[in-house]
Design a protein around this nucleic acid. Structure first.
Lengths: 145, 145
DNA sequence: GCCATTTGATTGTATATGCAATCATAAGCT
DNA sequence: AGCTTATGATTGCATATACAATCAAATGGC
């Protein structure tokens, strides 16, 4: 039962690949928040955009994308869907290429109602992952940004 | 300039949401591996499945999904695409509901050629995130699994 | 042996994601 | 002014992801 170079590399990937782990945790974490938010008809990906809009007042897509490391085309379609639901509105700008957006009253109200669900999911995930990891995650994410 | 309860909660989410960070890192990390693997026509999500198949010999979908916290319907379609490309094949089973799959020779060869690209991306990500985070990530991911 | 239940997987539908190409406007150069 | 380049965003296309519903086969009780 000899191990080839190939098998050794496969073991190294299976046991050490960072992408495998980050992606797995992403699925687990996303599912917990999504489950908690589901009664509101809201997904965590969308809540993040609502929060960015709430923080920024009027948000420029390129700026949001840079902060979140999100492709502009991805945000474009997310905003489109959320605009269709009446949660966001695009405001006119001097630069006529720009499409800055902001929360509607309805979007703000949705976000307000989403806060308890977020808190529940946040607590659940924190206890699942542990404080140590959560702290390091915060540091690392800030550094990457 | 008073801060409402709402604004305080929004700040708490913007500054502390675990999902925001895990999802952001997931995008950054996935993009690095995908970029490195692109010349091979392979994505890291698919490479993970090839590796699982290589490790398991013949892989049962439900078992792969449990390990990776992946929905079975997601894997079903991923395998479908990879089967269409000739990288995986479904093998018959005594239980006629089952659809265990394994690497084809072509899939194995692709995986062999993908190893250097994986190593490059892995090194790049490790230096970006730092050894401390990577270690904690491994612990945490093992615990969650 | 038959029916209800459980189990393994696929299909319908929707969102999320990114790359490449495109479009429209702005900015800069001459 | 007019041309080129840069910038902000959308569109075409493909993959990834999950929930709900369904399908098919195995299993368990009787």
């Amino acid at each position: 039962m000899v191990k080839t170079k190939f098998d050794e590399s496969i073991d190294a990937i299976a046991n050490g690949c960072i992408a495998v782990r980050v992606r797995m945790l992403n699925r687990v974490v996303t599912n917990i928040y999504d489950e908690s938010l589901r009664p509101l008809g809201l997904k965590v990906s969308q809540m993040n955009i609502l929060v960015a809009a709430a923080k920024m007042g009027t948000a420029r897509p390129a700026e949001v994308c840079e902060r979140l490391h999100l492709d502009v085309s991805t945000l474009s379609r997310n905003v489109e869907r959320m605009q269709a639901r009446g949660w966001l509105e695009v405001v006119p700008d001097a630069d006529r290429r720009a499409q800055p957006f902001r929360l509607t009253a309805e979007g703000r109200e949705l976000l307000r109602r989403a806060i308890p669900a977020w808190k529940k999911a946040q607590a659940q995930v924190k206890s699942l992952l542990g404080d140590g990891f959560v702290h390091r995650l915060a540091e690392t994410a800030n550094r990457v940004r």
